[in-house]
């Protein structure tokens, strides 16, 4: 899957999700689900992807349980649990096989999302590890002043603000410099922008999409 264009992967994920609603046959869904599990082996980050899929599997089982408890029929419950798993898995597969930069390039170039928004998505992921370290140092600093959490939900929320506020305040201060620096780096006018990570659809991509359509039609028609 890593050789396909980002847009192709998005397309495949969408198609498999839509397909899961075109049938009420558990067997067909099982085949789609199986195909997803098999494709994990073609990924570079097998382990972490498998772990994510395993978590979703547990989640699907829980959904199944809740429905049975609420009195749904076994088939219906099984159908919705499998649909959920198929959709969630398809997203995981796209994410684990594509670089964020490639995804945003596909979103801008092929899905016509405005570049500002695509940029925001990548930048958010860039700052997550930094802010995670910051949240750690904030909680250490507050622990050194006797911070303990506990008590009623409202009190807990109030004392939890101790940890959030310094981060929010620092973010506000930082956002001003960031805005200036973005402007200095020519951010804003996206019409003439180059996209280094743009992945174009080539023969393999069209073939993959065609194959998938054929495969699904056969499944939906003859099973």
């Amino acid at each position: 899957m890593r050789d396909l264009a980002a847009f192709t992967k998005i397309l495949l994920a969408l198609m498999v999700s839509i397909n899961s609603f075109l049938t009420t046959e558990p067997l067909v869904l099982a085949v789609f689900l199986g195909a997803e599990y098999v494709s994990v082996f073609f990924l570079t980050k097998k382990k972490s992807a498998a772990r994510a899929l395993a978590m979703l599997f547990v989640f699907a089982c829980m959904l199944l349980g809740i429905q049975l408890l609420c009195g749904s029929s076994v088939t219906l419950s099984l159908l919705s649990a499998m649909r959920m798993a198929i959709m969630a898995n398809s997203m995981v597969l796209v994410l684990f096989s594509t670089k964020t930069q490639q995804l945003t390039a596909a979103l801008v170039k092929q899905c016509h999302l405005s570049y500002s928004y695509a940029f925001m998505v990548t930048a958010i992921f860039r700052f997550v590890p930094d802010l995670l370290a910051e949240s750690h140092s904030v909680s250490e600093a507050q622990a050194c002043r006797g911070y303990k959490s506990g008590g009623s939900p409202y009190n807990r929320m109030r004392s939890y603000m101790m940890l959030i506020k310094p981060m929010v305040f620092r973010a506000i201060a930082r956002s001003e410099n960031m805005a200036v620096s973005l402007e200095m780096r020519g951010f804003g006018d996206s019409s003439r922008r180059t996209f280094m990570s743009e992945t174009h659809m080539v023969v393999v991509d069209y073939a993959a999409v065609a194959f998938f359509i054929l495969f699904s039609v056969c499944l939906l028609r003859f099973l």
Partner: peptide, 16 residues
């Protein structure tokens, strides 16, 4: 912290 005071490098990480 009742007997040891710890002052971190960056005061912004505690001011709330």
């Amino acid at each position: 912290s009742a007997v040891i005071g710890y002052v971190f490098q960056n005061p912004d990480s505690q001011i709330f």
